[in-house]
Simulated scan of single mutants.
Amino acid sequence: MTAVVAVAAYLPEGRVRIEEVAGRLGLSGMQAKIFRRYHKLGEVALDPHGGLADLLRGALRRLDGLRGQEHRVRYVLHARTFPTVVPYPHDPVGELCEEFGLGHAAVFAVGHHACASGLLAVDAAGRLLAADDDRDGLALVLTGEKAFTGEAQLVPETSFFGEGAAACLVSAAGERDRMLAYATDPRGEFDTDDQETALEFQRVYADTLAAAITAAVGRAGLAMDEVGVILPHNVNRVAWHQVCRTLGYPRERVVLDNVATTGHVFCADGFINYLTARDRGLLRQGEPYVMAAAGAGSGATFSAMVFAH
């Protein structure tokens, strides 16, 4: 059974107020005010001087579980929100693999689920290791991107992207943080620029994400009241309050600590929130928790994964 062996994250020290980001993107003062007062966003994490390699390197340096285990890593997966994250022919992930003694591993990107690609990568990593039938093997999942274009800085009417990275080691089996179930709902009908379809996406967002969570929890043989916490993607508080209302789940058990101070850190949010929950003592031995995310890119994807800590 797929298990997460170790998790680390890196957030740059720099923070930028959302009003400054909104101004650069041509948003009005009223739009910025709505983001702050209604969506409860405050600032985003940004590193104006570093590149993608610096973000990922920061996470890898903090991944203590990798030390001395480099030879066991069979796969390195970079989960991406956007198909292109650096200009051609740069290859920061490949370069970091050489730097950290992982040059022997198979390296590739995982996308197509946009901001839910981090969960897809964990599932793919576990499946690859299980297919190898190698109990000693590990996979490394990397998440995090640069907010280097206008499209990569703003989720229209929803959130701002922040910069950071996370790294996690995955095994085919383990005693802690075992994956119990995974549910994903890809919705190709939202692959359009039509305004009416965009409004429909906003209308069904909470119900569809809640349905994905419910499906994953059901596949794990559990009920929602057995789930200790939900580790969300950091879009905004209001969206998660709506999801909780649909689920009938206490919103105080959704780890929203980082929403106002980091922004939506692409596919890294769930892993960053895992560390926050762990540090707050919210993850209890044997208790199930959910990591959930929605992505919008080539269509939309709503995903949830259940683990037992």
Score class of each variant (00 low, 15 high):
Gly188Phe: 00
Ala59Asp: 04
Ala152Pro: 15
Ala277Pro: 01
Ala215Thr: 02
His78Ala: 02
Val4Asn: 14
Gly162Lys: 12
Arg15Ala: 06
Met179Asp: 09
His309Gly: 08
Ala277Arg: 15
Ile34Asp: 09
Gly263Arg: 12
Pro83Cys: 11
Arg72Tyr: 01
Asp185Met: 07
Gly126Ser: 02
Arg278Trp: 05
Gly297Pro: 00
Ala9Pro: 14
Leu63Val: 05
Thr81Glu: 06
Met1Arg: 14
Ile230Thr: 12
Val227Glu: 10
Leu77Asn: 00
Val265Asn: 03
Ala124Cys: 15
Ala277Thr: 14
Arg62Ala: 05
Glu43Leu: 02
Val204Lys: 04
Asp54Ser: 05
Leu63Gln: 01
Val306His: 12
Ala172Phe: 00
Ser298Cys: 14
Ala147Thr: 09
Thr158Arg: 04
Val254Gln: 07
Pro48Asp: 02
Pro156Cys: 09
Arg17Met: 01
Glu226Trp: 09
Pro87Glu: 12
Arg251Lys: 12
Pro288Leu: 11
Ala53Cys: 13
Pro232Gly: 01
Gly188His: 07
Ile213Cys: 09
Phe190Tyr: 00
Met1His: 15
Leu138Glu: 04
Gly286Met: 10
Gly174Ala: 04
Leu283Cys: 09
Leu154Ala: 05
Ala294Ile: 03
Glu151Gly: 06
Glu189Lys: 13
His104Gly: 07
Leu66Glu: 00
Cys267Ser: 03
Gly297Phe: 06
Phe271Tyr: 15
Ala223Trp: 13
Asp225Ile: 00
Asn234Gly: 02
Leu63Met: 00
Thr184His: 08
Ala293Cys: 02
Ala210Trp: 01
Cys267Phe: 01
Lys146Ile: 10
Ala296Gly: 04
Leu60Gly: 02
Asp136Ile: 02
